[in-house]
Amino acid sequence: MTQAINNPAHWDQRRMEWVASVKKLVDQLADWAAAAQWTVERGSKTISEKKTEAYEVPTLLIHIGDDEIRVNPIGKLLFRAEGRVDLEARPTLNRVKLIADGSEWKIITESNVPIRSPWNFETFVQLVRDLLA
């Protein structure tokens, strides 16, 4: 186990899995946004974390009229989390954190209170409306 943790290949593997799960999430959110008739802009950002080389991940900007939701991947190697992507609203600056939990995403508010709703289109649309309210 210790050998695996100290092995750079171990972290490279975890990083690749993380980038793949972020890409899958961003694609899913882009599809859901399109279904809700919101426009999207795709982008990318570089993340630097300990134990692994800097790497690139996709980002997404969702336009809802004049308002925006920013899909902002934060990182994989986080305290008490297996990866985190933030959804941040503008102009309200409200934010929730999506915490990777296996193949699912848990929604956590800024006060660290979990929103116990299934991760699906309806939840996403409601979340966007609540973030902008």
Binding site: D67, P91, T92, L93, N94
Partner: peptide, 13 residues
């Protein structure tokens, strides 16, 4: 704080 940032954000829009 959350209420404050929301209100100031709405002004900036």
């Amino acid at each position: 704080f959350s209420e404050c940032k929301q209100r100031l954000g709405m002004y900036l829009r």
